[in-house]
Amino acid sequence: MLTDDMQVVYECPDALTDVITHYCPGCTHGVIHRLIAEVLDEMGIREKTIGVAPVGCSVFIYNYFDCDFAQAAHGRAPAMATGLKRVHPDRVVFTYQGDGDLAAIGTAEIIHAAARGENISVFFVNNAVYGMTGGQMAPTTLPGMKTTSSPTGRDVELAGFPLRVSELLAQMTGAAYVVRRSVHDPGNINKTKKAIRNALNVQLNQAGFSLVEILSSCPTNWGTSALDALKFVKEQMLPFYPLGDYKVADSAKSFIVG
């Protein structure tokens, strides 16, 4: 019961607009958007931030943030972000991409952005399917996982094996901070928020390329309830995509909070 000696301790961050998202009920894109917005507010950098939206469910991210945004061609957000950052080196530039956008069509762009040590931050949302187009197999779909384009379960004989992006990019010398987190429960959500803040701090201090891979849920296309989807992340995805810090370069160490 709200009494007058109570004060707000949590409310919608300023960096988010009041537009209600189009995401499905329980889709954790919403959580990740909120975390980024909270960090932009806490670091006081909303006004000097430029976001680059992908093609995928989160293409409309630009409707939900009160900062400048560019909407990139499918897979090309890291290239577009490179162009933006090179002409505005004093701005904070981040891309927000799904697994189809980053790990399929955009593989070359993300690898080379990391190889160049591009001073951008990438928030890579891995929910193991192509969401916007209705749940097809993505590069991160688990072996045996049913999707609309692997209807009998991903057959590794035919469709090969999932990409572990964090491990892949950790090899790049130019990558300063590459970590994998998850948002399947409040504890991990808070850890994800720290990682987002670390990534943006690495960028602010010109320490190089930063990427946070975030395991996320897709209740609609997984055909589960929102709650079961988080269970799926925890029980099925985590074993295949272990959480952890895959690269923290020396250049980044002093800008990372544990």
């Binding site: 709200l2 009494t3 000696d5 109570m6 004060q7 707000v8 301790v9 949590y10 409310e11 919608c12 961050p13 988010l16 209600i20 998202t21 995401y23 009920p25 329980g26 889709c27 954790t28 894109h29 919403g30 959580v31 909120r34 429960d185 409040p186 959500i189 808070n190």
Partner: peptide
């Protein structure tokens, strides 16, 4: 923390 739609505002005495 877990709400995907920022629907919850929290107050504390």
């Amino acid at each position: 923390t877990i709400c995907p739609d920022v629907a919850i505002t929290v107050y504390r005495e």
